[in-house]
Design a protein around this nucleic acid. Structure first.
Lengths: 160, 160
DNA sequence: TGTCAATAGATGCTCTTGCAGTAATTGCGA
DNA sequence: TCGCAATTACTGCAAGAGCATCTATTGACA
């Protein structure tokens, strides 16, 4: 922590790291979003859902599980899945043994669209994000930020 | 790059780095946003604008300059500034010598609100983000991602 | 000096999201 | 087996963001 005369602008390492996360996220996402919409006709949010289902056993997940794996709230997910379902890429099924629940499953068409979209989407992310980092930097960022998704622990309690 | 049987899921370093950026951004922002709204009554977008003006010479910037420094589009900024202006935290002034332009300036009240909000906001970011990284990790992330905001170069042209 | 493309910013429209509240179902405990 | 809190998912409402478009102004060039 270097010294700085302005109390609202402390010079810290983490502030620059945070700014990097903020800008990298926003700039890469904006480019990738436009690209995906142009090529596939649907936004990244759809691809996130399709990819989560693709990776799940039986290509299906309950709404609740989808919520945990994605970065959406429940209410947002309901209508997001509504739209994807209307496009025929997923369908809702009842959950055996729990009539409250809904299982969202990838349709064959959804799987095809996923396969086609995901590969090219990753190419864009590689070009716009990965390509700007050295292998060592990639590794360092991956290691440093793994805790935010790897095991989804609680936020650290106020320790002082 | 390790080998992987699924062509849509190449195992790469940058994919994990990207996932880290995505999750860190979303999770930290959601917490910080709620916190700021509860305590100050306005969202992070407002604080971004106030902070950019605070850091600018004369505590003012043209809309265009604000757009470059922030992560908003022009149309979004117009109405964002509308709201902040309606709350009395900034005001619009004409630009001498260019009647197309508008200069957005921090009001004394806006400056007070900035000072109060920013310090606590940074504490939250430190707790939720910086506190989860070692100093070495903070430095590594800051260095690796500096290119996304430090000098705002064009995205790398398709080089093959 | 007249023309016209470029620039600065605002606006109409639409899509998306989150919060708060609602309805149905489940399962624990008396 | 009855009651009740917890869980699952959906919906009304309103706010926020982007794209395309529009108006006013500027500045370069013939």
């Amino acid at each position: 922590m270097e010294h700085n005369d302005d109390p609202t602008r402390p010079a810290t390492r983490w502030a620059d790291a945070w700014r990097g996360v903020l800008f990298a996220n926003a700039k890469v996402l904006r480019i990738a979003e436009r690209d995906l919409v142009e090529r596939e006709g649907f936004p990244i949010a759809w691809l996130d859902v399709l990819a989560q289902l693709y990776d799940a056993p039986g290509n299906g997940l309950r709404m609740q599980e989808l919520e945990e794996r994605s970065l959406f709230t429940r209410s947002g997910l309901t209508r997001l899945v509504d739209r994807i379902e209307a496009a025929g890429l997923v369908r809702r099924e009842p959950v055996p043994g729990d009539r409250r629940g809904v299982r969202v499953v990838l349709t064959p068409e959804g799987r095809r669209r996923h396969d086609r979209a995901f590969v090219e989407h990753m190419r864009v992310i590689e070009r716009e994000f990965g390509g700007r980092l050295t292998p060592a930097e990639q590794q360092a960022v991956a290691d440093a930020l793994a805790g935010f998704w790897h095991d989804d622990q609680e936020s650290p309690a106020a320790a002082g």
